[in-house]
């Protein structure tokens, strides 16, 4: 299976996210957006809004200062 055909799933660990928005800014496929609900720390965390568009480029995990994003393949 080539990388192209792979399916990726991005998950945001809500209570680890401080809502800085860097992942949203740098995701080329606009997979991520801001959650309307506050998390435990009182931030509006990021959340996948177009999960199916994820191509597993890992830009979001690169820029996340809080290791709040997990990307799964398959």
């Amino acid at each position: 299976m080539s990388k192209k055909d792979k399916v990726f799933t991005v998950k945001v660990r809500r209570d680890f996210c401080k809502g800085c928005g860097l992942c949203i800014e740098f995701c080329k496929k606009e997979v991520l957006g801001t959650s309307a609900k506050l998390n435990r720390m009182g931030y509006n965390p990021a959340e996948p809004v177009k999960p199916e568009a994820c191509i597993g480029c890992m830009m979001c995990t690169q820029v996340c200062p809080d290791l709040a994003i997990e990307v799964y393949s398959g």
Partner: peptide
């Protein structure tokens, strides 16, 4: 499903840092 970005071995498990949102320290720590 397989996790691609495993938690770094030498970073304490599941810590939430005291750094402000968007601070560069977290990135360099990682």
């Amino acid at each position: 499903m397989e996790l691609i970005n495993n938690w770094p071995k030498y970073y304490k498990k599941d810590v939430v840092t005291h750094y402000c949102p968007g601070c560069g320290h977290g990135i360099v720590h990682r």
